[in-house]
Design a protein around this nucleic acid. Structure first.
Length: 273
DNA sequence: AGCCAGGAAGTCC
DNA sequence: GGACTTCATGGC
């Protein structure tokens, strides 16, 4: 059990932020986090966090996952104090961080996200993992075991109908096509192409995938490739931009952290009273 | 309480 | 511009 005091981090906000769909709220107040074949339980009390992993694994993986090397306080301080909405949004959802998630997991989750809601996406992902993921034991955690997120090769035996049956709806055909393309090294080749690419190239390449339009491609770039200047525009953000930034959002001013501000605005629009 | 309509982090044709 | 799957959600 590891304990750290960490700034600018709020587990509940991240869990509800809609950037990840593999977190589970546990009865005792902690969260079970599945990512890239690993599992961790973490509990927050104020700015004090208890992690179930060993220090070694924390530094090797989870520190990066939670993006703990980035200075979110600096991002918030750089917000124009005359921008009342952004200031309020950052105060309201200031515990959100951009997780460094697994690319494949993000691709699948956001392929599912179109015309869908967070609750239902989470449910579909849970069913996907339970059916095709690997059941592993997790000593030192309260749950004791977890299911990994199945990779494209794990899903070789899954048909379009199987995806439809776990709530994918009409998106099942996108998922089947994605799995077919990403099997047998396809995913590794795509990732090798995307990582070094600039934002525009990565976005264009992702949009070639069936079922991936600009919005989903932008989410994959932001959450799956950690390209921090993507600013996905969905129905909520579109509404905010139209209502609150009639002269245009100051994209140039916030180069380098646009994705974080997008998260603050999205979360604020979704949950503030 | 139980039903029903509108809507959900959009994309394809 | 219309169709698309399904279902949690809120209004009545």
């Amino acid at each position: 059990m590891l304990e750290y005091r960490l700034p600018d981090l709020d587990l509940e906000q991240i869990a509800r932020s809609g950037q990840c769909f593999c977190w589970r709220a546990l009865e005792w107040g902690g969260y079970g986090v599945t990512a890239a074949g690993r599992y961790l339980e973490v509990k927050q009390q104020g700015d004090l966090f208890c992690f179930t992993c060993a220090e070694e694994e924390f530094y090797a993986f989870w520190r990066g996952y939670f993006d703990l090397d980035a200075d979110y306080g600096a991002v918030k301080r750089a917000i124009d104090p005359e921008d009342a909405l952004l200031t309020r949004a950052a105060a309201f959802g200031g515990g959100i961080r951009l997780l460094r998630q697994d690319l494949w997991e993000v691709m699948v989750c956001f392929l599912l996200s179109q015309n869908n809601n967070i609750t239902r996406i989470t449910r579909s992902v849970r069913l996907l993992c339970r059916r095709w993921g690997e059941h592993r034991s997790a000593p030192g955690t309260r749950a004791g075991s977890y299911f990994t997120f199945p990779g494209p090769d794990d899903l070789a035996g899954a048909a379009q109908e199987d995806f439809a049956a776990i709530g994918f709806g009409y998106r099942a055909k996108y998922m089947a096509a994605l799995c077919a393309q990403m099997r047998d090294g396809g995913l590794a080749r795509l990732e090798a192409e995307l990582r070094p690419a600039d934002g525009a190239q990565a976005e264009r390449r992702l949009m070639e995938l069936y079922g991936v339009g600009k919005k989903v491609a932008d989410c994959i770039c932001l959450f799956g490739l950690h390209k921090r200047d993507f600013f996905p525009v969905d129905t909520h953000i579109r509404h905010v931009l139209e209502a609150r930034y009639p002269l245009g959002f100051p994209f140039e001013r916030y180069q380098g952290s646009l994705g974080i501000l997008q998260q603050y605005l999205f979360y604020y629009d979704l949950y503030h009273g």
